[in-house]
Simulated assay, not measured.
Amino acid sequence: MTVANVEALAPLLTQGLAALKLPLSAAQQQSLLDYVALLAKWNKTYSLTAIREPERMVPQHLLDSLAPLPAFEQLGGTRILDVGSGFGTPGIPLAIARPDWQFTLLDANQKKTTFLRQAVMDLKLANVSVVNGRVEAVTQEGGFDIITARAFAELADFISWTRHLLAPAGSWLALKGVWPHDEIAKLPVDITVNSVDHLAVPGVEAERHVVHLTVKRT
């Protein structure tokens, strides 16, 4: 993408952020557009996402990743793990929006983590680290305050594979499409579903929900 093409997406992003009531600075919005430009460039060779049009990436990847930001903020955690981050959603948009938080982007696909490292470097995201590997094999001292994932796995598997990485008072925030009734029914008995909130994402007609889960406190 050329600079002119990226700038043409600015009104679409600005309108979307206004609809979400997310006041991001001009510099943050530019970083988000730079991310889209980088993704579109790499996507031509590496097929990172099925969405190829940058104007569709704004709602489908940027706004879709930022819509649950208030849910993250309500929990108050600052150490975030994005499991199966792929090409960086929701982790990179969230990291741009909250530079005071620390994000770890985890994916088992080396091609995708190569892109993630390039994006982190190009966008100068000092609050982001990238890990290539299977989540079951990853360790983290102290655990993460929030573990999130977008289109990663069913809730029971998500919990099972990441439980060892959750801080003692941590939470899972799973980003889902339709209300996941069947997945919730399969959860372990020691998991509490605190809320399932509908998200209205500008430019995205499909349903979106964020599921907040914790381990039951005894």
Rank of each mutant, 00 (worst) to 15 (best):
A26S: 15
E55I: 08
S129D: 15
W172D: 13
Q102W: 07
M1S: 14
P168F: 09
P168C: 08
I51V: 08
D34Q: 13
G88P: 01
L81S: 04
Q28H: 11
V178F: 11
A4F: 13
A206G: 13
L105S: 03
G86M: 02
V138L: 12
A200P: 01
L33G: 07
A167Q: 13
V131K: 13
D82R: 03
P93I: 04
L48W: 02
S65F: 00
N194K: 09
T14I: 14
L20E: 01
L62N: 01
H181Y: 15
P188A: 04
P180I: 10
G86R: 02
Q74P: 13
N194E: 15
R208G: 02
L22D: 05
A10M: 04
I96Y: 00
L106Q: 04
N43Q: 04
P180R: 12
N194Y: 05
Q28C: 09
K111W: 03
E183F: 14
D122G: 06
N127L: 11
L69V: 08
A26C: 12
I159D: 09
K176N: 11
V215M: 12
V210N: 02
V193L: 10
L33Q: 07
V210E: 01
A4C: 05
I80D: 08
Q74C: 14
F87P: 00
P180S: 11
L62E: 00
G170V: 12
N132Y: 05
R98L: 11
L22R: 00
L62H: 01
P70I: 08
A37F: 10
Q60I: 08
A169C: 10
K111P: 01
N194G: 13
P68C: 04
G76P: 09
A153F: 12
S129Y: 05
N109M: 14
L175K: 06
L48C: 06
G88L: 02
Q30K: 10
L166W: 05
V128A: 15
A50L: 03
S195R: 12
P68W: 02
I146Q: 08
E73S: 13
L12K: 08
L116H: 01
F103W: 10
T114W: 12
R56T: 06
G177H: 05
V215T: 12
I191S: 06
L116D: 03
I92S: 05
A50F: 03
Q74V: 15
G133P: 03
L24D: 05
L106G: 03
L62F: 01
K21C: 01
A18L: 09
V204Y: 03
D64T: 02
L213G: 10
L48T: 06
M57F: 00
A185K: 09
I80L: 08
A27D: 11
S160P: 06
N109S: 15
H164G: 11
D107Y: 01
K111Q: 07
N5H: 14
E7N: 11
